[in-house]
């Protein structure tokens, strides 16, 4: 009888802390296998939170960066239009604003900003799928998206998608309607 209890105790010690849990690396691999969390759902939640914070539905932004698990906004302050603040949305919550320093050599703010309502974020899942396909990176790749006005490519904002895989990286550009313009394998 004593030997049975010894085996049970040994099993508890060996298995203890493991059953039903995974370690951090396995968890990250699972996140990556599902696409890293960069998705329409993430951005829609972030825009809703930002609208609530500012008290307006169509605020202006100078840049939006969508990463795995987080969204960064450079937002023009509706109350003080000369000011731009950075907000980071992660884990379903919006952080406190951080002032953005601007210099006289920067493009005029009026030319850099665009309305968030004009960005087809509801198309983001399709844009990401096209970026994965166009770059040939994945599956298991993760993506980050920058939405900004890039002066060299014209006056309108565009989506710049960076795709990162285990063995290769790539990028793709989409116009303001979410149409693929170009892709680049690295």
């Amino acid at each position: 009888m004593r030997s049975v209890w010894s085996v049970v105790a040994l099993a508890v010690v060996v298995a203890g802390g493991c059953v039903g849990s995974i370690d951090r690396d396995e968890f990250r691999a699972e996140i990556d296998a599902r696409g890293g969390g960069t998705s329409t759902a993430l951005v829609v939640g972030a825009v809703d939170a930002m609208s609530t914070e500012l008290g307006v539905t169509d605020f202006q932004v100078a840049k939006v960066v969508v990463n795995s698990q987080s969204v960064l906004f450079d937002v023009r302050d509706p109350q003080q239009p000369d000011n731009v603040d950075t907000y980071v949305y992660t884990q379903g919550r919006l952080g406190d604003p951080t002032p953005v320093r601007r210099s006289s050599s920067d493009d005029p703010l009026e030319e850099s900003v665009f309305g968030i309502g004009a960005v087809p974020f509801d198309e983001l899942d399709r844009i990401l799928a096209e970026a994965y396909e166009a770059t040939g990176v994945g599956p298991g790749a993760t993506a980050s998206v920058v939405v900004q006005k890039f002066g060299v490519f014209g006056d309108d904002f565009m989506f710049f998608v960076n795709v990162s895989g285990e063995r290769s990286d790539g990028s793709a550009r989409f116009d303001s309607t979410g149409t693929l313009i170009s892709e680049d394998d690295q």
Partner: peptide, 27 residues
């Protein structure tokens, strides 16, 4: 349930457990 094991000092480790909920796209 994610397990984080840290070594505070030689011969001593601590393990913490955190629960996460995930959607289909890894968020």
């Amino acid at each position: 349930v994610v397990r984080d094991t840290e070594s505070i000092r030689p011969g001593e480790t601590t393990t913490t457990f955190t629960m996460y909920c995930m959607d289909e796209q890894g968020l």
